[in-house]
Design a binder for these strands. Structure first.
Length: 809
DNA sequence: CAGTGAGCGAGCTTCCGCTTGACTT
């Protein structure tokens, strides 16, 4: 018998809370939302006040039934989902789906998982806030309407299976526009002058590096300046010293954790979240999806104690940080170690490194400012009006810098700063060397995953739980790719004045190298241009901020949710209708020139399967010739020559083992064909330049790999094999696959062992079942949804090639 | 897995935000 049932969102949280509450309370988790709009269609009754048709997804029915049973037994059901819009809606859905008796419900909230906070919450229950629930419904319905009306339009006008939405389309737009800026960026070169000066004092020689305050546009100007420096006097005009302070960064939120883990550890945003989830489930850190910079009183107390004992009381400064980000809902604490006295943990390397980062950031956030002293030495001359400046910085008190300094995205070359020599006003300096180097202005940097998250957060677009998935989605849709751009070698002029002589030389530098940056694909550009042309309002960077304001008004009871949706929807739907009618299909078609052999037009355009080259017209009697673009080629810049080169495939390279070796370009990119077998080229292989010996290498490699796939075969029974699959070894018997028990070594299995495993799996119903490739079964009647069912062992189902066209990947 | 791209038409694709395992060959 359950007296009190407490429902929280996360199972890890449930476990912790149960310990605080004692045996009169049973704590269960609902694993986030338990109901949603079905995926198959729009599921909103537009005519009747935009009534959403919710359903419990199939993978949640078991869970909901279990909760329903417990709730029935319980005297009181405590709905303890998070205190934000989504959390309130989760409580409401629970009340509805579990058919809870209103008198049994108590809604409670807490922002930190401490005994006091929980007990405090229990003593102050409230009712479900229906205004807040309505605000969530408005959010949900708006996103569904936008997503499910824009996407089908793209299927018609651009390409099937594409998608658009309030968040993802703006994310892609940011990347497309940045690329456009880079394309239009005009590189300007200039000359930067710096000098090395020296002085003898008290028997010692001091050297000092200073940079000229002015820059020169041309070589002539730089050269004439250097000429003025020949034999010039250099005097210290003044020495400015001023104190400065640096404050620590606030504790981590999801977004700042992703940024710092990317800059300091090189993690992708997904990797950061996976590792953080592991730490959370181990009880090592607090919840990792949060937009709050707040720390609990208990955490502040622990931080104070920890800093005092490690560094002394002068290093402590307890601070209250205030969230600056737009639309923050602050249902949780900042991300911090659960126990701040653990300055390290035992775990995987990644876990240890991420924990270390979180620990340092949290501790530093409660430490004193660093105190600095900045010094500028200005050096002038009678021979010219410009000034050389040497800057130095010394740390008077390190404060938080003892443990942590936030990294920055800026890639500017940092000037070396440190202690300057003891130089005073009116000191006379000798010039050792003065150089003028040609520099170039840099285009704005492409986004990294993490800097895109930062930008989205600034715009108030997306939530902590969606940053990583959004970045995955726009890559899955092939709107953007993550690439490392190799820099280009560029020559630059160097002028050096030394021993009263000016020498000129040409040097080379590598510039423009960018690692793992986001850039748009042809499809990304076309879709973004299409959407910004016809749906300027949705693609507007402030669209989310605007609707969020309305959601807030709904939450405050000042507006009615479906009225807000109505005002948005009808004009939007009209835009959809209008565009459907008037807009042509988008193909990005561009005429490249004439094909010299046939005299026909050569076009580049977006086809059903991606960018392609077409020779001839669709209307021609003879079918046009087609070929897909290679990876790395873009519709935007491809030339006629490059396009025509693609039609040389499949190309005969030579012979290997008496059989022809061909290079071709297929559905999955460039390949080698030999003896009827296909092998994909590696990313680094250029199909236009590949040699026969490299192709043979690939064929041999593939052969070796295939040998390794089969671990064991049995002559007595060819139907049974032990195979090394993508997800580890398994047994294949009579076309069905079986897991190998953990205590058995795959390479030592005998035929008898295998058959025993097969028979045991077959007879044990429930948990252990044979698994096989999922087949899609077409229902007899139209109108019913397609179902995916695993192949049953008893039924003899022949695999038809059509049914397996969905390859898993 | 491997040479598609017109057009016919059925059937399918798609959103954002909460949460974790289950599952893949």
């Amino acid at each position: 018998m359950i007296k009190n049932l407490v429902i929280v969102e996360s199972p890890a949280k449930a476990k912790t809370i149960e310990n605080f509450l004692g045996k009169d309370y049973t704590v269960k988790s609902c694993f986030g939302h338990i109901r949603d709009l079905p995926k198959k269609d729009i599921s909103i009754d537009i005519e009747h006040g935009f009534l959403p048709k919710y359903e419990i997804p199939s993978d949640k029915t078991k869970l909901v039934n279990d909760l329903k049973k417990s709730a029935k037994e319980a005297e009181t059901v405590w709905l303890a989902s998070d205190e934000d819009r989504e959390g309130e809606a989760i409580s409401w859905h629970l009340a509805e789906a579990l058919k809870l008796d209103k008198t049994k419900i108590k809604r409670i909230v807490f922002h930190e998982i401490t005994k006091n906070a929980i007990l405090e919450a229990i003593s102050h229950p409230r009712l479900i806030n229906n205004d807040l629930v309505d605000a969530q419904q408005a959010r949900r319905v708006l996103d569904r309407l936008v997503g499910y009306e824009l996407s089908p339009l793209l299927w018609k006008k651009v390409r099937p299976s594409l998608s658009a939405g309030r968040v993802q389309s703006v994310a892609v737009r940011l990347i497309v526009e940045r690329e456009e800026e880079i394309k239009n960026f005009k590189i300007v070169s200039f000359f930067r002058v710096s000098g090395i000066f020296s002085i003898n004092k008290d028997g010692k020689t001091y050297k000092i590096k200073a940079e000229l305050s002015a820059r020169f546009k041309t070589k002539q100007e730089a050269e004439s300046f250097l000429k003025k420096c020949v034999g010039a006097d250099f005097v210290v005009r003044d020495v400015e010293t001023k104190p400065a302070r640096k404050s620590p960064a606030p504790p981590f939120t999801t977004s700042t954790l992703q940024q710092e883990a990317s800059r300091k550890l090189g993690f992708s945003v997904t990797k950061t979240m996976v590792v953080a989830q592991q730490l959370y489930e181990d009880g090592k850190i607090t919840y990792m999806r949060t937009d709050s910079v707040n720390l609990s009183k208990m955490a502040l107390g622990m931080a104070k104690k920890e800093i005092e004992s490690a560094f002394g009381a002068s290093y402590v400064k307890i601070r209250n940080y205030i969230t600056k980000s737009k639309g923050a809902q602050e249902a949780h604490e900042a991300i911090r170690p659960t126990y701040l006295n653990n300055n390290s943990i035992n775990g995987t390397k990644d876990q240890e490194r991420l924990y270390d980062l979180i620990w340092k950031r949290t501790i530093a956030s409660q430490m004193s400012d660093a105190e600095l002293e900045k010094t500028n030495i200005n050096i002038s001359s009678k021979s010219f009006s410009e000034i050389f400046v040497a800057s130095g910085e010394i740390i008077k008190f390190d404060g938080f810098l003892k443990v942590y300094l936030e990294s920055s995205d800026d890639e500017d070359e940092e000037t070396q700063k440190g202690l300057l020599p003891p130089i005073k006003k009116d000191d006379v300096l000798d010039s050792e060397e003065i150089t003028a180097l040609e520099r170039n202005t840099l285009h704005p940097p492409r986004y990294t995953e993490a800097s895109l998250v930062k930008k989205l957060e600034e715009l108030g677009i997306g939530r902590p739980s969606t940053y990583a998935p959004t970045i995955s989605t726009i890559q899955k849709r092939e709107y953007v790719v993550i690439e490392t751009k190799e820099g280009i070698n560029r020559n630059y002029i160097s002028l050096i004045l030394k021993d009263n002589k000016i020498s000129e030389s040409i040097k080379t530098e590598n510039t423009g190298y960018e690692k793992s940056k986001l850039s748009p694909t042809d499809i990304g550009v076309l879709v973004t241009n299409f959407l910004t042309e016809h749906f300027k309002n949705i693609l507007d960077y402030n669209f989310t901020a605007k609707v969020e304001k309305e959601f807030d008004e709904i939450a405050d009871g000042k507006k009615v949710w479906n009225q807000v949706i109505k005002e948005f929807y009808f004009p939007f739907h009209e835009q959809i209708n209008e565009t459907t009618k008037t807009s042509k299909k988008v193909s990005g078609e561009r005429l490249l020139g004439l094909d010299p052999t046939s005299g026909k037009n050569v076009y580049v355009k977006l086809g059903r399967f991606g960018p392609m080259i077409q020779i001839g017209e669709n209307t021609d009697e003879e079918k046009p010739k087609f070929v897909g673009l290679l990876k790395g080629q873009s519709m935007d810049v491809i030339t006629l020559k490059e396009a025509l080169a693609l039609f040389l495939f499949p190309k005969l390279l030579g012979k290997y083992e008496d059989e022809d070796v061909f290079i071709g370009i297929g559905r999955f990119g460039p390949y080698v064909r030999h003896k009827g077998g296909f092998t994909s080229l590696q990313k680094t292989d250029d199909p236009l330049k590949i040699t026969l010996s490299r192709a043979i290498e690939l064929i041999v490699e593939k052969g070796l790999k295939n040998e390794k796939i089969i671990i064991k075969e049995f002559a007595e029974n060819p139907d049974v094999k032990v195979i090394n699959g993508r997800y580890g070894p398994y047994i294949s018997a009579m076309k069905l696959n079986y897991k190998i028990p953990k205590d058995k070594k795959p390479e030592e299995l005998t035929l008898e062992d295998c058959l025993q495993i097969v028979s045991q799996t077959a007879t044990t119903s429930g948990t252990k079942r044979a698994f096989g490739r999922k087949k899609t079964v077409t229902p007899k009647k139209t109108g019913t949804a397609k179902k995916t069912v695993p192949v049953k062992k008893t039924a003899v189902i022949k695999a038809s090639s059509k049914a397996t066209k969905k390859s898993p990947k």
